[in-house]
Design a protein around this nucleic acid. Structure first.
Lengths: 239, 239
DNA sequence: CACCGTTGCGTTCATATTGGTCATGGAAGG
DNA sequence: CCTTCCATGACCAATATGAACGCAACGGTG
């Protein structure tokens, strides 16, 4: 099967270059072009489509200088451009996710993301394509059954777990993250320990990991006797 | 949460009545209207939208007298109608599935289908909506994380219709499911092993499959020394 | 002003207990 | 009789815990 032609739409040059480089590292994908804003993206897609090389997949940043990502998706559909879309955004609003699904967004990436997450989403998209191309064990050319379609949808939406550093478990990390998200102010490791019923060592290890990843910020708390206590605060400001 | 307003678009009167009856039998859904062809469907949606009662989900037959289902979807997007779509078709062509996904089709039903299949698709769609409405275990209003979005997308899968992975048998799976349904609280893999008289490996394999399918939730149990024990809890209350 | 005991958290290590995987055995079907 | 498939037992790897040690700031005291 030939490579899937991908268009990168991203206003920040550094991020755009990074995404393009990611595409190059992945088998089965080819960079078809790059655009810094919505207008040029639409123009570029129209040109490529007229040239017989239509874009098949768009990596679409939702936060662009001229148009919102959702508007671009709507205009694409209105113009007869039916490339699939993977949305990239720092906006963590769920109602946007719903609107995105309604306009045909296939995957949703939240900044900042690692290369592993990125590659994972693109791979599952390619698998979705391949399953539609060659259905079932029965044979090619035959019609698709309900289970064939279900299977293709499943590989599209299935989340796959990312490799975590040694010594950390996914469910524990999720628990700590959820707790931190709910806390308005800063919390200490001991408070996390008590709230989640885990040991101080474990709580601190996960908080430290989140601090290194940039998801939480870490400051020292003075004023009380004893060694200064680290306090952690949910930050996760975009990118 | 209020009911989801559904529009049925189907040219055959018998099928249309059947779909409408199906909707009535399902909790959480309300029939917003019914249309026999594309033009009237679009008109009806526009009217309801203007009346402040926009259609949220469309059961869209792809084979209509005046317009093809894909055309209707495209015109919906062009007109600013962003209801989600469940496509219903007898046409078993996979390239249509791909185009359908690009226009925001959420699920795909192939005729003829049973009520069970139908209900399953609608239930998974409702679960998708609910997960977007209230992310995480306790937090409302907080931002969504990548895993939250992934989980919501995952609930658009149809686990019951998927073929069982290698190494699992249907009868054993049923036994584990029945046992889990009866348990009010959380149970560990060891408890399932002892209760059903199977080996720990087998119990864990089936519980893990159910956890991936979203039928049970998996959390860690802290407080005791040693590696944390996974405990599983029946979570799919929607069925 | 300098020094020192106190205090509480950060850090490290061994340990306990479970999860995950591999190859084997037995049963069902052809 | 052979093949295929699933459950099993045993091994190795993983991960939270508890205790012990060290460190940094506070608050007296000389």
């Amino acid at each position: 099967m030939s490579d899937i032609r991908v268009l990168v739409v991203e206003d920040e040059p550094i991020a755009a270059a990074a995404h393009a480089a990611y595409i190059g590292r992945l088998d089965g994908f080819t960079l078809a072009g790059s655009a810094p804003d919505g207008q040029s993206a639409l123009r570029l897609m129209t040109e490529l489509s007229a040239a017989g090389q239509p874009v098949e997949l768009v990596l679409l940043d939702m936060n662009l200088p001229d148009l919102h990502g959702l508007d671009i998706a709507r205009r694409m559909r209105a113009s007869g451009l039916f490339a699939d879309i993977i949305a990239i955004t720092a906006v963590r609003e769920l109602n946007i996710v719903r609107s995105a699904v309604a306009t045909g967004v296939v995957q949703y990436l939240i900044k900042p993301f690692t290369y592993a997450t990125f590659a994972d989403k693109l791979r599952s998209y390619r698998q979705f394509r391949e399953q539609l191309a060659s259905p079932g064990p029965g044979g090619a050319g035959a019609g698709a059954s309900q289970s064939d379609v279900d299977q293709a949808f499943a590989s599209l939406r299935a989340p796959s777990e990312l490799p975590l550093p040694k010594g950390l478990s996914g469910s524990t990390l999720e628990a700590v993250q959820d707790f931190m998200k709910q806390q308005a102010g800063a919390v200490s490791a001991s408070e996390v320990m008590e709230a989640l019923g885990m040991s101080r060592v474990t709580a601190r290890r996960y908080l430290e990991y989140l601090a290194d990843a940039g998801t939480v910020s870490r400051t020292a708390r003075y004023g009380a006797p004893g060694r200064p206590e680290n306090e952690y605060r949910w930050s996760r400001s975009g990118s």
